[in-house]
Structures are given as structure tokens and as C-alpha cells.
Design a protein around this nucleic acid. Structure first.
Length: 634
RNA sequence: GCCGAAGUGGCUCAGUGGUAGAGCAAUUCACUCGUAAUGAAUAGGUCGUGAGUUCAAUCCUCACCUUCGGCUCCA
């Protein structure tokens, strides 16, 4: 048989051979570092016996498939350790996830964080023993018998859900056996670096009606140094936490009196307004009109829009003069009413109506998270009313706009296409048409995307933009949603070239998504060190001694007159102390002024994280700052 | 909402069944200073809220509120 490797080379064997043995033939290092095999495109064990001509890829930890096998075996290792320490525990599921693994257990007695260390120690002990991992298969009925014999209620349920004729694979390492599709490592000895990271409750099968199990999260690496590097990344993320920086930099706050409702402090407001100035410039250039619609509207409107039926549990309800009203969770119905308030010609279309609207949504208390998940937020919303044949051009233009905005902040991003959810309105035919329209645009622009089955809005499919921040985390921000339903429900119309009434199509779209969340992401992306144009305080003037206070104040007023956001520190403190404080406040430029500067009409410039940058005259300084500020223009 | 953890001066955190401390910050004073912490003094807390146990509760018990880590959900 012929084995074709990834690099195109071919090895021939007279008899069937296991993937691991082929790896050993290629090099001992590969045999040692390989985690799994991909045979003819399918994920397999290294112990998989290749019997015919095949394409073979041997994957190591640096590939997704290799890491997956490694983490998956780590999950089994965790389960084995738990079995040793807590006899009688019941096992649910234990998959690999990004950056690690978890396993769900049903413990007889609750365990605490201090137990994790014990479990970790037991895991290390099993690793030292270097126990071989073996694979075998059983028929469905044999597997079921195994689960019943061991009183594994969750496994019984898992096996019962499989087809009758299914052959089920098992993995056994010493005294621990688990049913599992694999692939798995050859032996426990390969898992050199382990860290159990957290303990959490999780519902069986993710359904809140089911029993709550105990989930143990962990991460693992083939090398200790890789684990350390990962733990450092977690530390870095902690330092960047927008909740911590938001408080330290006095940007926003949360109060017990309004859980999930952010308060913006003066500096946070400067940030927000600067961001919105940029946003308005972009949208003016893309020919959007801006509107504003009420926060509270009659319940009848929400019944008409479908929100009452599909979105009610997230809405805040109130009454005015005995009539039921709801606080808007979305901006669209308001915009529909504006469109409807006038007669439109096909010549008006596409009509791009933007609204930075404040929406309120009742989120469950457990999901609130700083600015990332709040109960009141501003959406940089827009509704584009258009004809059927304008769909492609308009969607394309929105894709360009979002791309431009993300690039402005140096974000990379990827795109997902979400299709019809179960709870939705409209006909299959319209959903197909809308979904195809979106995918056609992505195909035309050659933008790769993954499909998110059943994750669309209740009124239409959507393109989601997931941006990636400076330390590699992704966040969903922009979306483009195509809607045939709302225009019909609101009986929108325009007069076509033929003089007849026609139904317009609507695009709902956001670029930032939520201004609040976007600000949270920016804080973490920049670690609080905003680019000059966006920084709430751009310049801080530090006087060396009281003798130059007057000059320092002159510099301040000159900067302010020129539209620079400047602060001054003329306290009776040493210059080193003031410099330190200004750096910790993450102000982009510190201007040190002393006797020398006062006499020559200059300032000594210090750049955040870079140090001293020489002296400039006031005119030179203003030129420089104006140039920097213009980066905030679109 | 559910599981687990936490809540002590503006911030970070000690601490004890006999009504509380530290560092930073703040205020005042002295120093008048050249690029990441000058020194001293002062002030500031009914220990998240409510109830219970106790001679006595910040500490033990219960309920509630908020926050944190997850689950589910999501911009």
C-alpha cells in the first residue's frame, strides 16, 4: 500500500501498519511529538491501523486537531484522577475546548477550589506512571450493559441516544474506562504540564431544566514553558480587564442602584463622544441620514413588529395613562414608523436611516459583565430601505463600511453567516432568498465565512463580524441583517417607476454593535493606552516648581484654545512623582515645563511608554498634536 | 434565572464571638525640587442590607442585594 504524506512524499508498505509506526519510520521525534493522525481527511488515533492506500497527516500540538486530541486525553486524565479520589462519582461528558478541556461530574458531596490542587496532584501521579491508553469497541447493547453495570446514568443516556447499529469505541487507561469517539494520545505520560483553572456549575446537556453538574476546567500543554506562557496571557488579560481600567481611569462605573446600567463619568463621556464624532464622519461620507426615535412606545407597536411574540421576556413594560407601553429593546420599529410617515418614490431608495438608539433589554442577572453585557446600551443602528435589486450593492457597501471602521482600530476580524432560527417569522422561501443574497455578497467579495446554523434574528438571516483584539480574543460586534418581514408587517411601500406600490426590503445593521461593549473592547485592546485622538486626556502639563506655574498655565490655555484635551499638575510635588502619576494615568503626552522651558517658550515632551522625546516650541508642539488628532478623522 | 465564591474607609487587602487595622489615595504643613514614589501630621469605616442565635455579632445561622467565575442567553 502507498501512504501519501502531507508534503506529497510517498512511502510504500507491504503490510498494514499503524499510524504511530509510520511516524516512527519517518523520525523518532515525530513519533514522540505526534498527537493524532488525519487519515484521508478523518481524525484518527495514532494507533489506527492503515490497511490501504491512504493520505496521512501526523498532527502535533501546534495544529488544532493535535491540540484537540491532547486536551481530550487530558480530560480523561482528569476523570481518572477524580475517580481515584472520589469513588462513586458519576461521569457526564469531558470534551476538549479552545485552550484546554473540561469534564462534568456529579459528585456526592460538593467540592471546593482547594480540592483542585489534590486532583491536580493525582493527575501528575498518573502522568508519571505513563499508563498506556488503549482503544476497543463494543456494540451498542454491550456498551449499554457496561454503563448499567457501572451505574453510569449519564453514559446510559448518551449511549441510548446513538443509533441501534452503532459500534461504540472505548478508551481505557489503567483502571479508568470511558466511552469516547477519540482520537486520544498513546499514553498518559505525554501530558507534561497541567493546570486546573476553575470550578463551575453546568447543566447536563446545557439545558437549565436539567440537573446542575460540577464542571472542572483545566488546560494542559506538552511543555511546561507553554503552560507558563499561557498563564502569562491570562495575567495579561486580567491587567487589561476593562472593569478594572474603567474604574482606575474614571471612565465609567456601576452602582448597586442600577445593576447592569452603566454610568459614564466625564472622561468616559469624552471617549464616547470622540468615538461618535468619528462614527458620524464615516456615516456622513457613506450617505446616511441620522434620526432619533422614542425610548418608549405603545405595546400595540411591539405586537405589530413581532417583538411582543418573539422578544417579550427581554422587554421592560410600563404604563402611560392606563395604556401598556414598552421600553424599546431594538430601534427598528421606530425607524419603520418614520419611513411610513411619508410617501416614498423609488428615487428615494436606497434610504439609509441611522440611529444611535438607547435600547434596554432585560438580561438575566447572572450574565451581566461590565460594559460587555449590560441592560441598557446604545446601538449604532441603521436601517436601509431599498428595492429587491439594490440588496447586493447595499450589503456590499455595508461590508465595506464595517471593514473600514475595524481597520481604523487595527482589528482583524472574521465573518459568520447565521441562518433561520426555530423561533422566527416568515416563509422558508423568503428566508432562502435572503440567506442566499447575503452569502452571494460574501462570495463575490471573496470573504471566507463560517455558517452559524439557526442563529439568525427572528426576522431575518445575518452576517456577523467577530473582531479579534490585540491579545487574540474574539468579540461579536457588527451585524448585517436582511429583513423581508418587518416592512410587510408595517405595510411599508414605495411608488415604483411603474407607478405601482411596492414593498421595500430592509437591512438592519450595526458597526460597533453596542457603543458600550465596543468601548469595553477598545479598553482591553489598547490596555487603556488609547491612541492620541481617542484619549480622554491627551496631554498633561507638569511643572517642575512653583516658580513656573504661570508659564505652565499659559501652555495649558494655549492647548485648550487649540482643541487639545489637556490637564495640568502644578502641585507642590517633585517632578518624578508627577511623571510617574501621569504615566500611570496612561496620558499619551506629558509636557515637562521648568525654568529652561519658560525662558525659551518650549516644552519638554515625554511620550507614554517611550520616555523623553526632546524639546519643542509651542508652535511645533501644536502642529504635531494636530497631525496626531487628524487620525481620528475618517 | 441556576451552580460555586466573595462583599471590611475612595482603591488594594489584613483581622477577631468582647463594637476594627495596613499600604496607596485624600487633606494640612515643611521642602522649591528636572523625567516612574520627599518627609511629617490629620481626617475618614454603624465591617453590603434585614432578621435570628448569644450576656455580647463585622465574625455563627437564615433571607435579600450586589459583584466575581461558569451554565444558559446575547450587541
Amino acid at each position: 500500500m502507498k501512504i501519501t504524506l502531507k508534503d506529497g512524499s510517498v512511502i510504500e508498505y507491504a503490510a498494514p501498519k499503524r499510524a504511530i509506526d509510520i511516524a516512527a519510520d519517518i523520525s523518532p521525534g515525530l513519533a514522540r511529538n505526534a498527537m493524532a493522525a488525519i487519515v484521508n481527511g478523518e481524525d484518527r488515533d495514532l494507533r489506527f491501523l492503515i490497511e490501504d492506500d491512504a493520505e496521512l497527516e501526523l498532527v502535533q500540538f501546534d495544529s488544532a486537531a493535535g491540540a484537540h486530541a491532547f486536551h481530550h486525553s487530558s480530560a480523561h486524565l482528569l476523570a481518572q484522577a477524580v475517580q481515584h479520589l472520589y469513588p462513586g462519582v458519576k461521569f457526564a461528558i469531558g470534551p476538549a475546548i479552545d485552550n484546554g478541556f473540561y469534564y462534568d461530574f456529579e459528585f456526592a458531596e460538593p467540592i471546593g477550589l482547594e480540592d483542585l490542587e489534590k486532583i491536580e496532584a493525582e493527575m501528575r501521579r498518573i502522568v508519571k506512571q505513563d499508563i498506556p491508553i488503549e482503544r476497543y469497541t463494543l456494540s451498542r447493547s454491550e456498551a449499554l450493559q457496561w454503563a448499567k453495570d457501572n451505574d453510569e446514568t449519564y453514559k446510559i443516556e448518551l449511549i441510548s441516544a446513538l443509533p441501534e447499529d452503532e459500534t461504540i469505541s472505548f478508551y481505557k487507561q489503567g483502571d479508568f474506562t470511558d466511552l469516547c469517539a477519540g482520537p486520544h494520545l498513546m499514553s498518559t505520560g505525554q501530558i507534561k504540564a497541567i493546570k486546573l483553572t476553575s470550578l463551575a456549575g453546568a447543566y447536563w446537556r446545557g439545558d437549565e431544566k436539567n440537573k446542575m453538574l460540577t464542571r472542572i476546567y483545566g488546560t494542559s500543554f506538552p511543555k511546561k514553558s507553554d503552560l507558563d506562557q499561557y498563564l502569562e496571557l491570562l495575567e495579561e488579560a486580567k491587567k487589561r480587564d476593562h472593569r478594572k481600567l474603567g474604574r482606575e481611569m474614571q471612565l465609567f462605573a456601576f452602582m448597586d442602584e442600577g445593576p447592569g446600567f452603566p454610568f459614564f463619568l466625564p472622561k468616559g463621556m469624552v471617549l464616547k463622544n470622540t468615538l461618535m464624532d468619528y462614527w458620524r464622519q464615516v456615516h456622513k461620507r457613506y450617505e446616511y441620514q441620522e434620526v432619533s426615535t422614542p425610548i418608549m412606545l405603545s405595546q400595540k407597536l411591539w405586537e405589530n413588529s413581532g417583538h411582543w411574540e418573539h422578544y417579550r421576556e427581554n422587554m421592560y413594560i410600563s404604563q402611560i395613562d392606563g395604556e401598556d407601553f414598552a421600553i424599546k429593546p431594538m430601534n427598528c420599529p421606530g425607524s419603520m414608523l418614520i419611513f411610513k410617515s411619508e410617501q416614498h418614490s423609488y428615487r428615494d431608495l436606497p434610504l439609509r436611516m441611522a440611529e444611535v438608539g438607547l435600547v434596554h433589554r432585560h438580561e438575566k442577572s447572572g450574565v451581566l459583565h461590565g460594559l460587555m453585557r449590560v441592560r441598557a446600551f446604545n446601538q449604532d443602528d441603521a436601517h436601509i430601505f431599498m428595492t429587491l435589486d439594490q440588496i447586493a450593492d447595499e450589503v456590499e457597501q455595508v461590508v465595506h463600511l464595517i471593514d473600514e471602521v475595524y481597520r481604523h482600530f487595527n482589528f482583524k476580524y472574521h465573518v459568520e453567516l447565521s441562518t433561520r432560527p426555530e423561533d422566527s417569522m416568515g416563509s422558508d422561501e423568503e428566508w432562502d432568498r435572503a440567506t442566499t443574497a447575503l452569502s452571494n455578497v460574501l462570495d463575490k467579495l471573496e470573504i471566507p465565512y463560517i455558517i452559524n446554523e439557526g442563529d439568525g434574528a427572528f426576522y431575518g438571516p445575518k452576517i456577523d463580524f467577530h473582531l479579534e483584539d490585540s491579545i487574540g480574543r474574539t468579540w461579536q460586534c457588527g451585524t448585517i441583517q436582511l429583513d423581508f418581514q418587518m416592512p410587510r408587517r408595517f405595510e411599508l411601500e414605495y411608488i415604483g417607476a411603474d407607478g405601482e406600490r411596492h414593498l421595500p426590503i430592509v437591512i438592519h445593521r450595526v458597526a460597533f454593535g453596542s457603543i458600550e461593549r465596543f468601548i469595553g473592547i477598545l479598553i482591553e485592546h489598547y490596555a487603556g493606552k488609547f491612541p492620541f485622538w481617542l484619549a480622554p486626556v491627551q496631554v498633561k502639563i507638569l511643572s517642575v516648581s512653583q516658580a513656573v506655574e504661570d508659564y505652565a498655565l499659559d501652555v495649558l490655555s494655549e492647548l485648550k484654545t487649540n482643541g487639545i484635551r489637556a490637564e495640568i499638575d502644578v502641585r507642590d510635588e517633585k517632578i518624578g512623582f508627577k511623571v510617574r502619576q501621569a504615566q500611570m494615568e496612561k496620558v499619551p503626552y506629558s509636557l515637562i515645563v521648568g525654568q529652561k522651558e519658560a525662558e525659551t517658550g518650549t516644552v519638554s515632551v515625554r511620550v507614554l511608554d517611550q520616555g523623553e522625546a526632546g524639546s519643542l516650541s509651542l508652535t511645533e508642539l501644536l502642529d504635531k498634536l494636530h497631525a496626531e488628532n487628524s487620525r481620528g478623522n475618517s
